[in-house]
Design a protein around this nucleic acid. Sequence first.
DNA 1: ACATTAAGTTACTTTATGTAAGTTAGTATA
DNA 2: TATACTAACTTACATAAAGTAACTTAATGT
Lengths: 111, 111
Amino acid sequence: MKQPTICPKFEKAISLLSQRWTALVIYQLLSGPQRFNEIQSSIGISGKVLSDRLKDLESQGVIKREVIPDTPVIIEYSLTEKGQSMEPIIRAIENWSQVWYKEETPSSDTP
Amino acid sequence: MKQPTICPKFEKAISLLSQRWTALVIYQLLSGPQRFNEIQSSIGISGKVLSDRLKDLESQGVIKREVIPDTPVIIEYSLTEKGQSMEPIIRAIENWSQVWYKEETPSSDTP
DNA sequence: ACATTAAGTTACTTTATGTAAGTTAGTATA
DNA sequence: TATACTAACTTACATAAAGTAACTTAATGT
């Protein structure tokens, strides 16, 4: 028995953002257009899932895929206006995380 | 080869929010303390996963679980200060969704 | 005594994600 | 000319997360 009374637009946005990696991909592209391998190595996602996500985000109009006929061909992903307009969401998350997560000592320099 | 250069605090926040249902649970609790079944039926989540999420969010200090010794006992979930402070994130998502998703005609009243 | 309700839990199935190897096209190097 | 190399993916297979439905427990209510 499902009777979610939640606004369908909001639900769509939530289901987009609560897919794993989606927010990180968008975050990454906020710093400018990037290529497949750049995104992959900077956020540590598997090629398979990144490929899925990029297709998905492209079909939703959040990012665009551009083929640059260099040799060999370069494929560049960037945010559309729709994607760019998600910046406030990402910044809100970033801001919250700075307030609520305390510094750790992840460095194992001194054993 | 993983070398994510992303701020660990931000990553934590993202991994919290990109778990399915997490944002909707928080959204739901923004309108006040609620009981298990209320949350379940309002967002359409399964009991199993809601149970998981509530434990998770509680252990992360985002929500609190309160046992009210009525008869039978009432269990009420509400946002902590940490949880409450996620409101700007949720509102940013809400706002974006209103701008970027156009009205649909989900009603099948007129075939 | 039997049914009902809230708040879960359990067992099992389906879907999503991860891993690693393979593909394709176009050079670059031996 | 043959072998290597790189970017951008795919594919096949393994593991983890989510969904479904039935079950549990404790305390009523009929």
